[in-house]
C-alpha cells in the first residue's frame, strides 16, 4: 500500500473531528485497492463511535460486508479486539432487527455470535 495514504489514514484515525469519518468512508471504503479498504475499515472500527461503526456494519460491500474476505475478516477481528463493545453491540442488534438486506442481517448476526463467545 502507498505509504503516504497509509499515513493519512493513520492521521484520520486519530483525528477527533467527525468529518474524518466522512473522508475515510468516501476515499477509503470506496477504494478499489483491497489494502486501502482494509486499513480504512479497521480505522473506522478503532474510532469506536456510532457513525464510524455504522459505516462498516450496515453498508453493503463495506467493512464486514466487503466482497473481499480479507477485508471482512480483518474488520471482524478489529471489532472483536475492541475493549468497549457497547456501541458495536447496539448497532449489530439494530442491523439484525431492521436492515432490509438479508445478507447484511446474517453477517451482523454472525459477528454478534462471535462477540458472545
Amino acid at each position: 500500500m502507498n505509504k503516504k495514504i497509509s499515513q493519512i489514514i493513520d492521521a484520520l484515525t486519530m483525528h477527533q473531528d467527525n468529518d474524518s469519518i466522512r473522508v475515510l468512508e468516501t476515499l477509503g471504503t470506496n477504494s478499489s485497492d483491497n489494502d486501502i479498504r482494509e486499513k480504512t475499515s479497521r480505522a473506522l472500527v478503532k474510532k469506536n463511535v456510532h457513525d464510524s461503526l455504522k459505516v462498516v456494519i450496515i453498508n453493503e460491500g463495506k467493512g464486514i460486508n466487503d466482497l473481499s474476505p480479507v477485508v471482512a475478516m480483518s474488520t471482524i477481528n478489529e471489532i472483536l479486539a475492541l475493549k468497549d463493545k457497547t456501541e458495536v453491540l447496539h448497532i449489530l442488534e439494530d442491523t439484525i432487527n431492521m436492515h432490509s438486506s438479508e445478507t447484511v442481517r446474517e453477517n451482523a448476526a454472525s459477528v454478534k455470535s462471535l462477540l458472545a463467545l
Partner: peptide, 12 residues
C-alpha cells in the same frame, strides 16, 4: 481533515 483529504486526493 480537509488538508488530509486534499493530500489523499493529490496522492491518488
Amino acid at each position: 481533515v480537509s488538508e488530509l483529504e486534499t493530500a489523499w486526493l493529490n496522492e491518488l
